[in-house]
């Protein structure tokens, strides 16, 4: 009895270690590629939001979130020749299914520069349209869901169905994303005013 238990345990351990070795090999090959992919994605995303900037510094620790459900993952102060252009905030919060991650850029003058959806796992064809560059909440003016925030004042109410247009049949997604953008913008403008920027 004891003997067979040991035998089974050892066989199981052998299979498990075999699988671990195989996984370690694959991880070692793909790990660096995944890392550079993520870095490249971050760099292009930051460049995309502040194309004129020539440097950025990590200020994640200085930006607390005012909502426990929404997490500020990273924040970067975007600079050009040493002067502050604005703040880019990467924040994650709950949406319709799973967390959504957004990257928002906030100008020193307290307006939103750009919003990008980095990750969303909501229903394709509905909530996921938030990240679709050819889905327009305003079909006539060809404004996308995130596009409508461009130039919006941080101090605006950010009320869904009032000053924020919703994605059809995806009120929950629209509301959650708006909340994430609002929290990011508030945190960023607090940082900017603390640094002596124009409020």
């Amino acid at each position: 009895m004891i003997k067979s238990m040991f035998r089974l345990g050892i066989i199981l351990a052998l299979f498990a270690s075999g699988a671990c070795v195989a996984l370690a090999v694959v991880y070692n090959i793909t790990g660096p590629v995944i890392k550079t992919q993520e870095e490249r994605a971050l760099n292009t995303a930051l460049k995309d939001i502040f194309p004129e900037s020539d440097g950025f510094s990590d200020i994640t620790k200085e930006l607390p979130s005012s909502d426990p459900k929404i997490q500020i993952l990273n924040a970067y102060a975007m600079t050009k020749g040493g002067s502050l252009l604005g703040v880019a905030v990467k924040a994650s919060g709950p949406s319709y299914s799973g967390n959504a991650i957004l990257l928002s850029g906030i100008n020193v003058d307290g307006t939103i520069k750009h919003v990008r959806v980095l990750q969303i796992s909501d229903t394709p064809g509905l909530g996921a349209n938030a990240a679709n560059p050819s889905y327009y909440v305003d079909k006539a003016k060809k404004i996308t869901f995130t596009g409508q925030f461009e130039g919006k004042k941080v101090t605006d109410p950010f009320k869904v169905k009032e000053d924020v247009q919703v994605i059809t049949a995806s009120t929950i997604t629209s509301r959650s994303l708006t909340a994430i953008i609002k929290i990011s913008a508030d945190a960023a403008s607090a940082y900017i005013s603390q640094k002596g920027g124009v409020k």
């Binding site: 699988a19 671990c20 996984l23 694959v26 793909t30 590629v33 992919q37």
Partner: peptide
Amino acid sequence: PIFIIIIAAFTTMVDLVMKAYFP
């Protein structure tokens, strides 16, 4: 348990490869 270990190992490989080459 052995089947699950083997299946999980291959699934994780697919996941890693997709993350690296088809993000």
